[in-house]
């Protein structure tokens, strides 16, 4: 069953407690610059920093591995694609079998890309693993000046997610009861999937309409400025987190520029 990420025993971890907007901004400020280069050194430094800071977010290494393992599939994909399509084929030729030509340059490039995928993804995984959706919406409204009706409306829709997951299971069983199954035929499987998805969408839109009416009945569209029952405060420590993320990211990039390994994605 799908459930929003829970925030369990992390309330006390020093960085997990930071303002959700600060955490999200820090994750993006740290991760996005890492996208700008293809060398292996920058993401390796980035990963080292991320893993070193992990305990401060109260996330265990095992849990991070559990959340991040699908990236291994992507890593495999990168390796295959690099072998077939790498732009840079310099270095010593290791394997040469017709279309497949593996050089040290190709392997070094693949290593850089794989490290980069992990280094770019982990900050977001860490932040979202330690952030409650309600707190995020509150902070987006109160600290990032996001329009409150949009943030709260999205949050209300998000609450229906587990319910829609249960609906999907019921719809699947109901299709078997109607005498429909696809067996091993992939086309039939696809059609059945599309029919189930359509039924889910109809039910979800109907629920959404009712939810919107119920929200209006409680004054959601009243036009009076909303007040906040829950306070999210952006403290100096939150600024420090954001600034720290920018500094560390810049440091990793600077190291790669100074050592001459920097390879920009553009140009």
């Amino acid at each position: 069953m799908i459930t929003p990420l829970a925030s369990d025993a992390r309330a006390t971890a020093p960085l997990a407690r930071r303002n959700p907007v600060a955490k999200l901004a820090a994750a993006l400020i740290f991760a996005l610059p890492l996208v700008s280069t293809l060398d292996p050194l920058t993401p390796a430094l980035g990963l080292a920093i991320e893993l070193a800071l992990l305990p401060l977010f109260g996330v265990r290494y095992g849990e991070l591995a559990r959340r991040a393992w699908p990236l291994l599939l992507a890593a495999g994909g990168i390796l295959v694609t690099m072998v077939l399509f790498a732009a840079d084929r310099t270095g010593t030729v290791l394997v040469d079998a017709g279309p497949i030509e593996i050089t040290t340059g190709v392997l070094l490039g693949a290593l850089g890309l794989v490290l980069r995928v992990f280094a770019v993804a982990l900050p977001g995984i860490i932040v979202f693993a330690t952030t409650d959706p309600t707190d995020l919406a509150d902070a987006l409204v109160q600290n990032a000046k996001a329009p409150p009706r949009f943030a709260i409306g999205a949050l209300a829709a998000f609450r229906l997610l587990p319910l829609l997951g249960l609906q999907w299971q019921a719809l699947t069983l109901a299709r078997r009861a109607r005498g429909l199954d696809a067996g091993r035929n992939p086309v039939a499987k696809l059609r059945l999937f599309a029919s189930t998805a359509f039924a889910l969408l109809v039910g979800a839109l109907r629920r959404g309409g009712r939810l919107a009416t119920a929200m209006d009945a409680r004054g959601f569209d009243a036009g009076t400025p909303r007040t906040y029952a829950r306070r999210q405060i952006f403290r100096p420590a939150d600024w420090t987190l954001v600034a720290g993320a920018a500094l560390l990211s810049a440091a990793a990039l600077a190291a790669s520029v100074v050592t001459g390994m920097f390879r920009p994605v553009i140009g």
Partner: peptide, 22 residues
């Protein structure tokens, strides 16, 4: 934007989240 516009837009996003999961 009416409330229903906001909620339905978000519901479309949530529903596709469930569809991708499935």
């Amino acid at each position: 934007w009416r409330t229903i516009d906001i909620v339905i837009a978000a519901i479309i996003a949530v529903t596709f989240g469930v569809i991708f999961w499935a």
